[in-house]
């Protein structure tokens, strides 16, 4: 890449419009408040270090890594988050929370997001779709934990 094209590239970036304009109104929007109320977590303590995503054993299966989820919650974009699979892939293993240097309980935020969805839609899984073979083989705790996370 020549110096000239590099220069053009940086100009392009400088004049690019941000996808989301951050302002006080957005930061205090209903989305972030709702998650905070249900989960009791102050998401604004997060400074985006990414330790949670590094610690997450299921991150490779997620649309968005946990730290980006927290960022979107800060911006009040919970409706966007409900389209991602991240809260449903979350294993509730609490590794993220233990590794957070800012004391943000990320696992609780994920539960808050699941709850917002479930309180609206009632269920995220269809019990009839669970294979009979699996249903009869699994220890009860697998099924009950699954229902607790995916049904209201």
């Amino acid at each position: 890449m020549t110096a000239m094209t590099l220069l053009t590239k940086s100009e392009e970036i400088n004049t690019m419009k941000p996808k989301i304009a951050l302002n006080k109104k957005i930061l205090q929007s209903a989305g972030a408040t709702q998650v905070s109320e249900i989960s009791g977590v102050n998401v604004f303590a997060c400074y985006q270090c990414g330790n949670c995503s590094a610690a997450c054993p299921a991150v490779e299966f997620m649309d968005l890594p946990p730290h980006q989820v927290i960022r979107l919650v800060q911006m009040g974009l919970t409706a966007e988050l409900l389209k991602t699979n991240t809260p449903w892939i979350c294993l509730a293993c609490i590794n993220c929370t233990v590794k957070c240097p800012r004391g943000v309980d990320i696992a609780r935020v994920m539960e808050g997001l699941r709850s917002i969805f479930l309180r609206d839609k009632f269920e995220h899984i269809n019990l009839n779709e669970i294979e009979r073979r699996l249903r009869e083989d699994l220890p009860q705790i697998a099924l009950i934990a699954n229902f607790r996370k995916n049904l209201q």
Partner: peptide, 12 residues
Amino acid sequence: TDCCASYQIVNE
């Protein structure tokens, strides 16, 4: 101390 992926055995 990693998670075994727990109850996701049902859905995922």
